[in-house]
Design a binder for these strands. Structure first.
Length: 933
DNA sequence: GCAAGGTC
């Protein structure tokens, strides 16, 4: 019996053949230079068998339009939604096809050994279709293997199954749909817009693709998030203490609050009783984890972040190193080392290095030898990226050496041990307010010795003892402002693509490259900025109401494809539905094409040329149906003054932000005031996070590493990442303390990266840096005296939700209790909400605080009386008073202080005359306003 | 001159 085996690539064919034949393999050439035949004997189904193993190089066939529709001017692009699509073998695959047909003719059995993923199944069917054409009686089998080990391939051979048509069908659906919508929209956009804007867009290819557009969308979305970001003022209390040569900075357990009055009140209480009592000194082991085994996505991100080598280039270099036999296959989704891989011998190879040889030697002799830290992902085909041998790479470029070094160091680090340290947390109380500082002593550096890309430093603390008291050197009230997120880096973009299922690990870098080469985006240092063309396209489609640049279109298709794979949906039905949906969008785009013109005219500062003549495919749809508007009409009525007016106003705005960002002082980030206990005067100072001083990691008040989360709620902060600890309630925007915001002459801030910043030119094809919108009023000065007017104005943009009549929940998610301020002062008699857990109870209270607007009895408190704030961590509120628990209620009110006293409004319908309790509308819970952090 | 997905 003769059995033909076909793998997805030559490399796989060679390995599988050698594993099955124990190396007794004869290699022969084929029509294709890169794909060999590997022949060996094998006991198959209890009889000796002549095995032939060969390969394709990925997809053998490609979908394309029937020849009548291939030329750009052959048809109206809308016809591409219904035009016949055929599968053909491209020129560069002809030799492989020829080999397969030649071999299939005299084999009885065909075993498919393509990768065990969706594309692999589809490639398998391409092979089957070609082979069956010459030999219809061929018996077809499928080998399923989880890794390239002898055990796995032998097991696959003894458990051959049938290929899965459903999985292959899903790929065909995806492929055909991508072709139809890609070609139709690309032809339309290119023909239409290059004629409409012949100067700005001459000879440009203005492509559309189901992956490239969402990728562009991410860049635009972040840009707009920065543009729309509303800065908010916050206040916080910082304590520092000098002991001998140490300056210890304590950070406030509440981190910061958005209510100036509340912070000032607490601050004054601290000043009145400035004795600090050490309430807790805790030492605990702390580890910094070694990196997980390297997959493609992580490799691309690391290259981009640590080496500043872009994903596309990094992959090209990795492929060259792979071809040279120096590293393993670089396209892998696996971050788990297979048990069969001989790690000690791979580590031993590296002992030859003068740079990391010593570390490799120690690693070999550590107890248990190399012990990799594995992740959770496996593509069941390839191992994690690792070096396969040591090489000085003398004949390679510097970038090749750096990429190789990264892969080797990552591999050695992954096989090493976590770094071990001891963390000391010191908690003090001043007037019942908690402040925390952390120290760190590194005990064993372990993987850090070889992994030069991670930093972890000691932070020494003087001795503190529980129960001791001291008078801090400084207690300061500092003001700050929230800052917008950064523009996306390539690594951020790859993460977003992975998260939303845009592209595959093998194509992320290519989609990014595409939107760069089409000039949809540009790079500002390492950050992506939308180009005017990219911005115009996104805004144009957005204006039509089509979410062409949003990731969920692709995600929805992905869900349907999954249903096809599971047999829950018919592929023909899915294809028909999807094609019809997109065709409708296309037709409506024709109707509203003026919106695309307008968006681009606005951004390109170009009113546009007159419309292409009717009947030209570039004006596709112009004369197509009775309900379509003619393009001529669009142009007559809509361009001209309107466009130029909009364009000039944008130009005006852009010119305000041109060229003055890179030289501005970083320290001007936020006008901050502080009042010190000793000086009782105010000076400008930039705050730094005490927590961040320990290491690159952000640590929260309870000393652990907080979780990283992303704001999902729609609003100015949507998409922003933040740190949050569920244990202590810690909250901090990511990059907030580490970012360098600068202020331009227009007194508006934007982010700049620490490197590679350039001046922006208003004539550039990329967008100007996004200026985040300033919140209501800007504070250049603050006094710690209560300033009701300015205080109230800070609250206006925070929330429109009155809290009248509602009982908020505290951070323990329990109904808050009502308290009354008894302390002498302006707030005496005011009611507020706090955690319902009584003071002194064994259970720890959270730091929730909110003034009770309904229950206030002090007639003099005027405006600002319903402001709220949230402590982000546990700790006493500083107010100890009578406790009166109240019934539960839903929702959580947010402060809204008016500048003057005004009639109370219902929190649900916002009408005067009643409160939530007796609102005629039965309201839903008000959503948590995460965006106002 | 179009897409995205394989791979070299």
């Amino acid at each position: 019996m003769k059995v033909l085996n076909v793998a997805e690539k030559n490399d796989a064919a060679k390995r599988i053949a050698n594993l099955l034949a124990n190396g007794a393999v004869q290699t022969r050439p084929t029509f294709s230079v890169y794909n060999k035949l590997y022949e060996f004997q094998y006991q198959f189904r209890n009889q000796p068998c002549q095995m032939t193993m060969t390969s394709v190089s990925g997809h053998l066939l490609n979908q394309e339009f029937d020849s009548r529709f291939r030329k750009w001017h052959s048809c109206d692009p809308v016809e591409l939604f219904d035009a016949p699509v055929i599968k053909t073998c491209q020129e560069n695959m002809q030799n492989i096809q020829k080999t397969l047909m030649q071999q299939a003719a005299y084999h009885q059995v065909l075993i498919i050994w393509t990768d065990c993923d969706r594309e692999g199944e589809n490639i398998g069917y391409e092979v089957i279709s070609v082979c069956q054409r010459v030999n219809p009686r061929l018996q077809i089998l499928r080998a399923k293997f989880s890794e390239m080990t002898k055990q796995a391939v032998t097991r696959a051979m003894s458990n051959l199954i049938q290929p899965d048509k459903r999985v292959s069908d899903a790929v065909d659906v995806r492929s055909e749909l991508d072709l139809r919508i890609g070609a139709a929209f690309t032809r339309f956009q290119t023909l239409r817009l290059t004629r409409k804007f012949p100067t700005a867009l001459a000879d440009r290819l203005i492509s559309y693709g189901s992956c490239q557009f969402p990728t562009l969308g991410f860049v635009v979305e972040r840009y707009k998030a920065i543009q729309d970001f509303i800065r908010e003022n916050f206040w916080k209390i910082d304590v520092s203490h000098k002991v001998d040569d140490y300056l210890v900075n304590f950070s406030w357990a509440r981190v910061r609050l958005f209510d100036q009055l509340a912070v000032q009140t607490i601050y004054e209480m601290c000043l009145e009783n400035p004795s600090a009592k050490v309430v807790k000194v805790q030492s605990k082991p702390k580890s910094k984890w070694r990196p997980v085994a390297l997959d493609t996505i992580e490799f691309e991100k690391l290259s981009s972040r640590k080496l500043r080598i872009g994903a596309k280039e990094a992959m090209q270099i990795a492929e060259q190193l792979y071809t040279a036999g120096i590293i393993s296959y670089p396209r892998t989704e696996t971050n788990i080392f297979p048990p069969g891989l001989d790690l000690p011998s791979l580590v031993e190879q590296q002992t030859n290095s003068t740079q990391w040889g010593g570390f490799a030697t120690r690693l070999l002799h550590q107890p248990n030898g190399p012990t990799p830290r594995n992740g959770m992902k496996s593509d069941q085909a390839h191992p994690p990226i690792h070096p396969t041998k040591f090489d000085n790479l003398n004949s390679f470029s510097d970038k090749h050496k750096r990429i190789y070094e990264l892969i080797v160091r990552h591999f050695l680090a992954c096989c090493s041990k976590d770094a071990i340290g001891k963390e000391t947390i010191v908690e003090i109380e001043i007037a019942d307010e908690k402040f925390v500082t952390n120290g760190l002593t590194i005990i064993e550096r372990n993987y850090l010795e070889v992994y030069i890309y991670d930093k972890w430093s000691d932070k020494e603390l003087p001795d503190f003892h529980e129960g001791e008291t001291f008078r801090p050197t400084k207690i300061e009230l500092n003001e700050g402002q929230t800052s917008p997120p950064n523009l996306l880096t390539e690594a951020d973009l790859i993460s977003l693509m992975e998260k939303h299922g845009i592209g595959t690990d093998a194509t992320h870098a290519e989609h990014i490259e595409t939107i760069k080469s089409r000039q949809y985006v540009g790079l500002q240092g390492v950050h992506f900025v939308p180009g005017k063309l990219g911005m115009g396209l996104v805004e144009g489609y957005d204006a039509m109401g089509f979410e062409m640049s949003k990731p969920h279109l692709r995600a929805e298709l992905e869900a349907d494809l999954q249903r096809i794979c599971e047999g829950r949906k018919n592929p023909d039905v899915v294809l028909r539905e999807q094609v019809q949906n997109y065709k409708q969008v296309f037709i409506q785009t024709m109707d509203q094409v003026v919106r695309l013109d307008e968006a681009l005219a606005r951004l390109l500062n170009d009113g546009g040329a007159s419309a292409p003549p009717p009947g030209n495919p570039g004006a596709a749809g112009a004369n197509r149906g009775g309900n379509n508007r003619r393009d001529d009409d669009d142009d007559d009525s809509d361009d001209g003054n309107d466009n130029s007016r909009t364009a000039s106003s944008l130009q005006q705005r852009n010119s305000n932000y041109t060229g003055n960002n890179s030289t501005a002082s970083r320290n001007n980030r936020v006008a901050q005031s502080n009042s010190s206990m000793q000086q009782n005067s105010y000076s400008t100072q930039r705050h730094t996070s005490n927590n961040q001083a320990i290491s690159e990691e952000v640590l929260c008040s309870c000393g652990t590493v907080p979780e990283t989360k992303t704001t999902r709620k729609e609003g100015p902060n949507c998409g922003r990442q933040f740190y949050k600890c569920d244990t202590c309630g810690f909250f901090q925007w990511m990059n907030e303390t580490g970012s360098n915001s600068v202020r331009n002459s227009n007194n508006q801030s934007f982010q700049s990266s620490g490197f590679g910043t350039q001046s922006f030119s208003s004539s550039s094809s990329i967008m100007a840096p996004p200026p985040p919108r300033q919140q209501g009023s800007y504070y250049s000065n603050t006094t710690h005296q209560r300033n009701q007017a300015s205080h109230s104005s800070t609250r206006q943009s925070r929330s429109n939700n009155d809290i009248a009549g509602d009982i908020p929940k505290c951070q323990c998610n329990k109904p808050a209790a009502s308290y009354t301020v008894k302390k002498e002062g302006v707030n005496k008699g005011r009611k507020f909400f706090g955690c319902a857990i009584p003071y002194g109870a064994q259970e720890e209270r959270c730091g929730f605080f909110q003034w009770d607007v309904d229950g206030n009895i002090n007639p003099d408190d005027g405006a600002g009386n319903n402001s709220s704030f949230q402590g982000r961590s546990r700790g006493g509120s500083g107010f100890s008073d009578s406790y009166s628990g109240r019934g539960s209620s839903r929702g959580r009110g947010r402060g809204n202080a008016g500048g003057a006293k005004r009639a109370r409004r219902c929190g649900i319908c916002h009408q005067e005359g009643h409160t939530r309790r007796n609102c005629p509308l039965t309201g839903e819970d008000e959503e948590e306003d995460e965006g106002s952090y």
